[in-house]
């Protein structure tokens, strides 16, 4: 029994570099906490809940992005879509539309965007990342035009309570929504034939095609899922802050994709999973949090951004290098 636990944990650590990194960061923070000069509030309940809350939006977005990446695509329009959704939902509510209707309309908007992405990149066979990059610019532009580049605030206080109502002590609904999205995507990828098809399409497009999988429809569906999660993330973000800005998503897509890759989902497709992506996102979230808790930016300002960039590059480098080694081994 004991030997088996050791064996399992060994494989987990070997497969999950990001998980190992999380453990290292937590240990490092524990050590820092023993030294009076660097003692921080990292392990306080407030900070841990904060960490969970601030990672939740990105985690929701990352679940859809994971599905798209596994199928061999990529969606960089999620930032623009998230920001636009926030703006639209708040403007609709301020215009007197009932909250559930406003949210439903936003999800519809997400489906339309996903359908356009899927049509141009999957059915017309163009390069998805540049198409979705363009789509992100279009959506941000629409958001800017709608708001004249000013942030908008919801007048109906009921909207705010959707994400922020606390249940289970200090844990708000937002976190539950995130956990639900993770659970659904995990179940979908692991236990449904659609999930299997997604892996097959991303792993080898031609083989999947000749195995009788409707590759086009499977791949297109992943873009719809990705847009839906981005829309949900946008609604939740607007609700959490009770306001929305058209430029809120400028750095989101690449941050989310990098975090997903950090977790072990490959940009080449066919490899990955919901839990892996969640671990990747938690790692980046924990690092950002640890940097701010240790007040690194008071030593050298902007150092945290540089460190985050270096860490992202190193992990992407390792991802590519692993593939190179595998290629050469064959």
């Amino acid at each position: 029994m004991n030997a088996r636990i050791i064996e399992v944990s060994k494989t987990v650590l070997a497969l999950q570099k990001a998980f190992l990194a999380i453990i290292l960061v937590v240990l490092a923070m524990a050590v820092f906490n023993m030294i009076p000069a660097t003692r921080s509030e990292f392990f306080s309940q407030v900070n841990l809940v904060d960490l969970l809350k601030s990672s939740s939006i990105f985690l929701i977005l990352a679940m859809g992005e994971t599905v798209t990446l596994i199928a061999g695509g990529v969606d960089l329009s999620i930032g623009g879509l998230m920001a636009l959704t926030g703006v639209v939902v708040i403007q609709l509510i301020n215009a007197g539309v009932p909250i559930p209707v406003a949210i439903a309309l936003c999800l519809l908007l997400g489906l339309v965007v996903g359908a356009v992405n899927a049509f141009v990149s999957v059915y017309q066979r163009t390069e998805p990342f540049i198409i979705t990059l363009g789509m992100g610019i279009v959506l941000t532009g629409i958001g800017l035009q709608l708001t004249d580049a000013h942030p908008v605030t919801a007048t109906d206080q009921g909207f705010q309570s959707i994400a922020n109502t606390e249940i289970f002590g200090p844990v708000p609904i937002l976190v539950l929504v995130m956990l639900a999205v993770v659970a659904v995507v995990y179940w979908m990828l692991r236990n449904t034939s659609f999930g299997r098809n997604v892996y097959a399409v991303g792993g080898d497009y031609e083989v999947a095609k000749y195995s009788g999988i409707n590759v086009l429809r499977t791949k297109a569906a992943t873009y719809l899922i990705c847009s839906l999660t981005a829309t949900l993330g946008g609604v939740m973000l607007a609700s959490q802050l009770n306001s929305a800005s058209s430029i809120a998503g400028d750095n989101t897509p690449l941050y989310v994709v990098c975090a997903v890759v950090v977790g072990g989902t490959s940009v080449a497709g066919g490899i990955g999973g919901a839990i892996k992506s969640a671990i990747g996102l938690v790692l980046l979230g924990i690092l950002t949090n640890a940097f701010s808790m240790l007040r690194i930016d008071t030593l050298v300002s902007y150092l945290p951004t540089a460190l985050l960039g270096i860490i992202i590059v190193s992990i992407l480098w390792l991802d590519s290098y692993g593939r190179k080694r595998k290629r050469e081994a064959v």
Binding site: F129, C258, V267, T305, L308, G309, L316, S320
Partner: peptide, 20 residues
């Protein structure tokens, strides 16, 4: 050194470098 051959890989690595 990473052996990146696809456009996507170069895109993400250079994006990370852009942050740096």
């Amino acid at each position: 050194s990473s052996g990146a051959l696809t456009q996507a890989e170069s895109l993400f690595i250079t994006y990370g470098m852009s942050l740096v």
